[in-house]
Design a protein around this nucleic acid. Structure first.
Lengths: 224, 224
DNA sequence: CTTAGGTTTAAGGTGTACCTTATAATAACT
DNA sequence: AGTTATTATAAGGTACACCTTAAACCTAAG
């Protein structure tokens, strides 16, 4: 009847964020991190120090943070749990696409492999979360997830939507309302000068989305 | 991307324990509570004070704690989540009977009705947890759970096991290894003097279990 | 009615995870 | 090289949930 959960909650969020913000092996600036987590830079620095003592991250002053081998392993484990729970919530409970992310965020810290592995089995060892992101393997391998971003397309190119990231309810709803959903086929019509907003055609409609938003959409090009 | 879970974890454990330790409307002594939770009486008193401010419990000094209407409602909600997760873990993931309690203990604090109600639906609105305990309704009603305890039987009486409580892995495993499982039919053979250990026959075997342990087993008598 | 034992309050501490304000150090740009 | 902006550290605080030790208090039992 122990009561302690041993608040591994926050550090896990840091790990996940560092992993997701990291491009290649470049260290993630603490400001970027604190920004994403909605935490003051000072507090984030403190936390990073604590995590460094536990050998989860390496901090290069004035450069940023990167994950150690241990940290990476743990980050991928959290990510796996997160995405499996998302699948569970949509596939088994029928919760809507846009809502599952937040719920999965609280579930991901609550259980270990003794639950997530049977869960993965029950779900049929899915390869991706409902938003199309790949699920790390139980062994801690991340399937390559390099795709083209919508804003990297050039005018006239056709492509299919693979992933939408980050899994923010607002973003997901907005894109969905414009017809940009997983598997949707689209064509890039025009790139606006200055702002770089993209005009794309989806189905029979034409919609305009900003460059930032476009960069949330991962696609693979198809031959027109 | 909020990071705060708003540690409702511990208070919820207190609520659950108070509910489960409470017999009728008698207040639960803080020592009993602190004992169950493995926490010092001083700390428990502190927590009770905090919870009193939030109008979750009423503390009568030197008597004990009882739940307010709000506290009761919340306790039953936690219990519902707990027992639904237990069902999920056994029915859907095939985890063993004796292990699901601890896992459910961490899951029960992570999600609200937006998840547990669809979960209940998916599980077929079960009425009891895998250990036989009744699941409170979504409206916060607790189905009556008064049964006879094994130690209340007299020699010669036959009965069927309905519930085992508390859901402690050690207890569950020990009883199971003696053939005392849900639905098992048993007969009380003899009550040992002084200690009050019970000799019972289960299946074709005779086993002896202590009085304390016997009180964990809820049964309903049958006509021999 | 007194006293032993359980209960409560008080006082001081720990560790985690956040906050603000202010100062120091560095990097990067002109 | 000097200034600016970012980044880090220092100092002091809050809140939660636990801890110990010690003193005050009540209750119930002899």
């Amino acid at each position: 009847m122990s009561i302690r959960t041993g608040s591994r909650e926050s550090p896990e969020m840091y790990l996940k964020s560092i992993y997701q913000l990291g491009v290649g092996d470049a260290p993630v600036p603490i400001s970027t991190l604190s920004n994403r987590l909605g935490i003051s830079p000072v507090s984030a620095t403190e936390m990073i120090h604590r995590m460094e003592k536990r050998r989860l991250v390496k901090h290069i002053p004035y450069k940023g943070v990167s994950l150690t081998k241990r940290g990476l392993k743990q980050a991928l484990a959290v990510l796996r749990r997160h995405r499996l729970w998302e699948r569970f919530l949509t596939d088994r409970l029928g919760l809507p696409w846009e809502q599952v992310h937040d719920v999965a965020c609280s579930l991901e810290h609550s259980v270990g492999p003794e639950v997530t592995e049977p869960l993965a089995a029950d779900l049929g060892e899915p390869a991706t979360c409902p938003h199309g992101n790949p699920i790390p393997t139980a062994e801690g391998e991340m399937p390559s997830e390099r795709g083209l971003r919508l804003h990297e397309l050039s005018a006239g190119q056709r492509a299919v939507v693979d992933v939408i990231r980050p899994e923010n309810a607002e973003i997901l709803e907005h894109l969905a309302s414009h017809g940009v959903t997983l598997g949707a086929e689209l064509e890039l019509i025009e790139i606006e000068p200055l702002d770089g907003a993209r005009t794309i055609s989806v189905g029979s409609k034409q919609v305009v989305i900003g460059k930032e938003l476009a960069s949330c959409v991962v696609v693979h090009p198809i031959h027109a």
